[in-house]
Design a protein around this nucleic acid. Structure first.
Length: 486
RNA sequence: CGGGACGUGGCGCAGUCCGGUAGCGCACCUGAAUGGGGUUCAGGGGGUCGCCGGUUCGAAUCCGGCCGUCCCGACCA
């Protein structure tokens, strides 16, 4: 399976390939505790860039950051019926502290709705105190039965946005706004264009009235739920006595929303753009934009190093994250492979010949159609061109990922046999009619392991609305998108 | 919790059937020569073979028990 150079070729065994990429790019490692992942500096650098971007987007929409505690009284989690039913099997519980058994066990948050709305209730008296738009960056724990680096770890890092509003309409608007924010982030930063839509009851967040999600298609044609935005209605505010006085002097329970994206996105990035060599990063999220590799040879070494430093400085002055790999071990080739494995978008090679000719060798990690991987450019022109090239790479990666998603989206599938053929064959998104019954959803899941990823948002819906249910043939009430998912 | 496989230096493995006191590749350390796509040579460090017990003169190897990991399912961002 593994090719001569060590990595498992994509396609032959996608899961093994994925793990190899994550480990060899030094994104993460296994921890001694099952299912808990150690994020290494390089992987964390990617996450940090994601955080920065998302944090900016949230602040643009008026959110403020805050922090709520890791431990939640067990009784809080149990208050909302669907919520406890959904999360009970996977919460870790602290029973002992301070050397003795606790009177009431504490759960390690699997998500923070309960503690947050408990606090909101204390802070809000009047409609004038609303809306509250809050976000927290935190870790949560869900004791999953099976785990995968980044994609499903027992503990993960995320942002969770929580809002409270005076009206149902405003909460709904917020839910859609956040969905759009996630979508924009995935497209503009990750170059991972998702499908958006409404979750079915079976897939909805435990405790929500409506859940919307971003569903991205990975290179093995399985879907990844990459972000969710929930309209919680008054489900939590009623349980946590979160009331406020209305404009007309009455009283009402607050209308809440929540949403989140996690370190899972790093896994999505790997599975969206990685290739047989390793990781491929979109420039906007790459911890290092350009790695400068000097090729040292005898007498010329000093001049080469001086040039390499000058180039690094010039790039930094243009806002480029440039790294000089001046380690004196190994050969240039070994460094080339290492940085390619790590997905660095551009490599600049500087050797004696380049110093002599006043040129730079610029090598792209991601090669779009019709481009040369390697180019030889006059030094100052090359440096000036880098920011533009990075932007172009970012754009090309999105364009290609979008084309791939569409090429693997099957619209207007009416025949159940055909549906099975696609799902059990190459996979991808299948757009089809659905009658709205959970039985049909379950039957197809049992038959094929595919689930309804979402009922697509308007702009994703097919021009010709499907008339009949894919599974039972009855009248369709909605268009549904099916896929096998992570 | 059901079905399958596996636990041997940091990583990947051989050795187990047929008991004789542990080996290979990569990585690591030292030195030298190299350096434009995974350099070469020489030297070196590191493992009580998952744990406990049994059989035996002798156990990585045979027997019993336990623990753990991975894959498939159920659960899931």
């Amino acid at each position: 399976m593994a090719n001569e150079k060590g990595l498992t070729p994509r396609g032959e065994d996608f899961a093994a390939w994925y793990n190899e990429v994550v480990l060899r790019a030094e994104l993460a490692d296994y921890s001694p505790v099952r299912g808990c992942m150690v994020i290494r500096p390089y992987g964390y650098g990617i996450w940090e860039n994601m955080q920065r971007a998302l944090d900016g987007l949230f602040k643009e929409t008026g959110h403020e950051n805050a922090y709520f505690p890791l431990l939640i009284p067990q009784s809080f989690i149990e208050r909302e019926k669907e919520h406890i039913a959904g999360f009970a099997p996977e919460v870790a519980v602290v029973t002992h502290a301070g050397g003795k058994e606790l009177e009431e066990p504490l759960v390690i948050r699997p998500t923070s709705e309960t503690i947050i709305y408990h606090m909101f209730a204390k802070w809000v008296q009047s409609y004038r105190d609303l809306p509250i738009l809050m976000n927290q960056w935190a870790n949560v724990m869900r004791w999953e039965l099976r785990t995968r680096l980044f994609l499903r770890t027992s503990e993960f890092l995320w942002q969770e946005g929580h809002t409270a509003h005076a009206s149902e309409a405003e909460a709904q608007e917020e839910t859609q706004l956040i969905l759009g924010l996630y979508r924009r982030f995935m497209e503009d930063w990750m170059a991972m264009p998702p499908l958006t839509g409404l979750k079915t009851e079976a897939e909805r967040f435990a405790g929500a009235v409506r859940t919307y999600a971003c569903e991205a298609l990975m290179q093995d044609n399985r879907a990844l739920q990459a972000g969710t935005s929930h309209n919680l209605g008054q489900n939590f505010s009623r349980q946590f006595d979160f009331r406020f006085q209305t404009e007309d002097g009455g009283e009402d329970y607050a209308w809440n929303t929540s949403g989140g994206v996690s370190t899972r996105l790093v896994g999505g990035l790997v599975m969206t753009h990685g290739d047989d060599v390793g990781l491929v990063l979109p420039p906007r999220l790459a911890p290092v934009h350009v790695v400068v590799v000097p090729i040292l040879r005898g007498d010329a070494s000093e001049a080469v190093l001086a040039k390499a430093r000058a180039v690094q400085d010039a790039l930094a002055a243009r806002g480029v994250r440039a790294h000089l790999d001046d380690r004196d071990t190994g050969t240039p080739g070994a460094k080339f492979w290492e940085w390619e494995r790590k997905g660095v978008p551009l490599r600049v090679e500087i050797g004696p010949k380049d110093v002599e000719k006043g040129q730079l060798v610029v090598v792209r990690r991601y090669v779009a159609d019709g481009q040369e991987k390697k180019s030889f450019l006059e030094e100052s022109a090359a440096v000036d061109a880098v920011p533009g090239v990075l932007d172009a790479i970012q754009a090309a990666m999105l364009e290609d990922a979008l084309a791939r998603r569409e090429a693997n989206s099957h619209r207007g599938v009416e025949d159940y046999g055909r549906f099975r053929e696609i799902i059990e064959g190459d996979g991808g998104f299948v757009y089809a009619g659905w009658c709205g019954s959970a039985d049909c959803e379950t039957k197809a899941k049992d038959d094929t392991k595919a689930t309804i990823r979402c009922l697509p948002s308007e702009e994703f819906r097919s021009a010709d609305a499907p008339q009949s249910c894919l599974v039972c043939g009855g009248a369709a009430t909605a268009e549904a998108v099916w896929a096998r998912a992570y």
